[in-house]
Structure formats: C-alpha cells, structure tokens
Design a protein around this nucleic acid. Structure first.
Length: 435
RNA sequence: GUGGGUAUAGCGUAGCUGGUUAACGCGUCAGUUUGUGGCACUGAAGACCAUCGGUUCGAAUCCGAUUAUCCACCCCA
C-alpha cells in the first residue's frame, strides 16, 4: 500500500473509466462545434483579484473556498470556475473586437476547498461555454439548447430544466428592499445564517434548507413580480424561444445563483439520481461582468456543466458511453525463434495501425490464450516451429472460433488488415439488415 | 466550518456477546500430460485486521484519542 495518498476530494481517473471521459469529451466538442463554439484554453491559476472582482467578494466561493498561494509579490488562485478566466482572456486578447457574438467553450478542472460529498469534489471538471455580444433572449435560448442537446445526446434521462430571472441591478434593488421588509417581520425566527443574509444578500434566504426559513420564505415576494419592463420582456422572450425549441422547463423563482455576476436569466439542469448535489449544469446571463472587468459594456452569458456529476448520473442510470477495450490480434509464440518472429510481426502490424499484442511474459501457450481472451483480442495467431518452417499459420477468430490460413510473409500485416476489415464489415452488415 | 456513518488482502465482504495458523467471493499467478481462450477444477501469492494508547492472562472483536474516508448541512458544477 502506498503511504502517500491522493488529497481528499480528488479523483484518479483509471483506465477503466478514462474511455468514458474521452468519449464524453469528444461528444462535447462535437456538439459545441455544431453550435459555433470554439475551444479556448486558459491558465489553471489567475491573479486572485480576478475572482474577487467577478465572482464577488461576499460569495462563499471567494470567502472560504479558494485555493490561493502567494508567490513573490503576487497572489494567485486556482480557478474555482471557468467564466472569470475565460472573460479575462477574451478581453486581454481582444476577441471582443472581432465579429460578435463571440462563442467559446472549454473543458477544464476547477478547484474549491469544500467538504467533499457525493457529486462534490475539491478538484472537479467542467465543460462550459461563454457567448458574448448578444443581449437578445434568443441567445439565452441558444445556450440552454446547447446544454439540453448535450444532456440528451449523452443519454441522460429525467433531467429537469429550471429557469428564473433575477433581474438587472435596477429591478433587483427594489426586490431586495421588498424582501428585507418581508423577512424583517419574522426576524426572530430566521436561522443565524439567514439573519446575516438579510443585510447582504436577502435573496439567499429563499434558498435556505432550514424548514423554518423555508416556511417563512414560502410567501415571500417573488422576483418575477419586481422585474423592470426590460427584464420582464426578456424573460418572456426567453420562454417563447424555449417553446419554439420545444424545450420543457419549469420556472423556479427560488433559483438564486451563488455567483454575483449573474443578471436576468439564470437556469439549472437538475437530476435526482446522484444525491444532494443534483445540479449537473448551471448558468445564466452576466451582462455587467465584462464592463466590470474593464472591458467594453458587453452583454454575455454562459453555463458550466459538472462532468463528474454528468458521468455519475449516467452511471447511476446504467448508461455506458464506451465499449470494452479490445485488441485486434494477439500473437502467441512458442519457442525462441517464434518469439522473434512474433516480435517482428507485431511491430509490422502496429505500423499498419493495428492494435497488436504479443507475449512479453514468457508464458505458456495456454496462459497466453487466456491472456488474449482477457484482453478481448479479436484474433489470435499461434506461431511455433511448424509455422516458421511452412511460412503459414492459422488466424483464429476468437468470437466464432473459425480459423483462416495466412502466410507469414512481408505482406502479413496488410493481409491481416483486410481480414480484420472484412470481419468488421460482416458484423455490421447483419446488424444493418436487422435494423 | 457543523453533524452522522465507516475503517479487515488489489476490489467487495464475513468474522455473533474478546480465546490456538483471520474466512469467503472477485481479481492476480501457476497448473488440470505434452500446440490453442471463454466453463469447471486444483494450488499459490497477497492483510503487521487505519494509527496510537487503554482494559484484560488474552483484542480484528470492548473503551479513548488521532487520522483517513463516505454521506448530509452549507454552497455550487
């Protein structure tokens, strides 16, 4: 047993599941591409100030969850989310001076010092998109639609989409006031944390899981009643566009994102299949952020999707993303001369792009065959003194058991290649006939 | 930061109210007559029973502390 262990809240992605990750990432890239999003890659750490100014000084993320290091005179922080760094990169590299809207996506790891639990890690991976330049609700619908298509295409079922509008600074001010007045009435019943929220961020009280606060919050004023004309039309437009796309949603006035930069539209895709942390995807509009970071006032929006949560949901729903690992052919030599021959042939096969394996353990024939089976080899070939003398050997199809004679010449790799293709084609042929 | 649960071979578990070589399944390795896998069978390797301390003639088993881990709160993806 190794005595140095991985840090709490981190995960090793072992070969048995890395194939799932690869497939998921491939799908994400393909779908993002279809929507016109291009990949951006940003640093793992940024100047701490960036997150303070974007995510917000008062948020839990900034106040108690950031991994920050001091190096020389500067303070750096491992990114707790992807938006801040992405926007920073877009500004620094002048992407907003090019054709708008700018659409970018990323696949990256984020770091938050929280207590780990089901679906919550200290290092976790996110797929995210950011779209900058459009104030229109059709852009919101487009981004939501992208998330929806991903969820559908990877095969997750039973996910609910919740949307809400938290307004712009103007209408939120009025709403905050209304909330403060409402909760002030039952001040002595609120839990301690909510009491402190009353001043700073009364909207959070709506989210409180304490039964008492929940009871009180039940009849609290709803943000949607306080939206200014612009925000309320925007929300109506969003609903209209979602309906055009036939995307089902539920308006949930209690959705309050914990990052300060959100305005107007906020949304979450939630599953009940992975425990308490069911938000697989969350995002919204942040029309003020770019200006706040020193860029030109530019409306924008995006989302983050938790890849561990996505994969966990798939696993709990019994969906698999990848086939078992296989190898195309296993070469089983017997004796030293044969081992040399097999060694050469294996190399030649690999040059042809064929996944070939041969013995490197000095095993008996029987043991080699067992190993070939464990490796899921499609074909095996036994090479001994007879085969070397004849220059001929039998290739065995491990699924059907049928054998094909093949010459051990320079064209061996090529010949096997066509045999392999034929067998794949045969398999596909019957399936398509059935379909 | 606050609760609660759990800690036995690579993995999953058993081990009842303390008593000689800690058990089982999966996995790994070797073999079941000499040149062919999946099934079955045989055997082997692999655990200072998380750590430290205490109770006891004697502890994996009881008590305490520590650490790790899981779940939940909080918060978020």
């Amino acid at each position: 047993m190794a005595n140095i262990k991985r840090p709490n809240g981190t995960e090793d992605i072992l070969p048995s599941v890395s194939r799932d990750w690869q497939n998921l990432e491939r799908m994400l890239r393909e779908i993002a591409d279809v929507y016109g999003f291009r990949e951006i890659r940003v640093p793992t750490f940024e100047q701490t100030d960036l997150f303070c100014r974007s995510v917000g000084e008062t948020t839990d993320v900034v106040q108690k969850e950031m991994y920050t290091v001091s190096a020389k005179e500067s303070k750096f922080t491992l990114r707790p989310e992807g938006t801040a760094g992405t926007i920073r990169a877009m500004l620094q590299n002048g992407l907003l001076n090019e054709a708008l809207p700018q659409r970018v996506y990323y696949i990256l790891s984020c770091f938050r010092h929280e207590r780990p639990q089901a679906g919550r890690l200290r290092e976790f991976h996110q797929f995210g998109v950011e779209m900058a330049g459009s104030p229109h609700a059709s852009a919101d619908a487009e981004v939501i639609s992208l998330a929806k298509q991903i969820i559908d295409m990877v095969g997750i079922k039973g996910i609910e989409l919740y949307i809400n509008s938290i307004g712009c600074p103007t209408c939120r001010k009025a709403y905050h006031k209304a909330l403060q007045e409402y909760f002030a009435a039952s001040k002595d019943q609120l839990c301690e944390t909510c009491l402190s929220r009353l001043e700073k961020n009364p909207m959070r009280i709506l989210d409180c899981k304490s039964p008492i606060c929940g009871e009180i919050a039940k009849d609290a004023p709803v943000i949607l009643d306080y939206l200014c004309d612009e925000c309320s039309t925007h929300f109506a437009q969003l609903k209209k566009h979602l309906e055009m796309l036939k995307i089902e949603y539920k308006v949930n006035p209690k959705i309050v994102r914990g990052l300060d930069y959100y305005t107007k539209t906020v949304f979450e895709f939630v599953t009940t299949d992975i425990g308490a942390q069911g938000t697989v995807c969350g995002g919204g509009r942040y029309d003020g952020l770019i200006g706040q970071l020193g860029g030109p006032e530019t409306p924008a929006l995006g989302f983050g999707m938790g890849l561990e949560r996505l994969l966990l949901t798939l696993r709990n729903q019994g969906v698999t993303l990848s086939e078992e690992d296989t190898c195309d052919i296993y070469l089983a030599p017997m004796g030293e001369a044969a081992a040399d021959k097999a060694f050469e042939l294996t190399a030649a096969l690999r040059q042809e792009g064929i996944a070939a394996q041969t013995d490197v353990m000095g095993r008996s024939l029987r043991a080699q065959m067992k190993y070939a089976d464990k490796m899921n080899a499609k074909f095996t070939i036994v090479i001994g003194d007879n085969e070397i003398a004849d220059g001929l050997a039998d290739i065995k199809n491990m699924k059907t058991g049928e054998k094909t004679r093949i010459a051990l010449t320079d064209t061996f790799a090529e010949n096997f290649s066509t045999l392999l293709l034929d067998s794949l084609f045969a398999g596909e042929d019957t399936e398509s006939l059935l379909g």
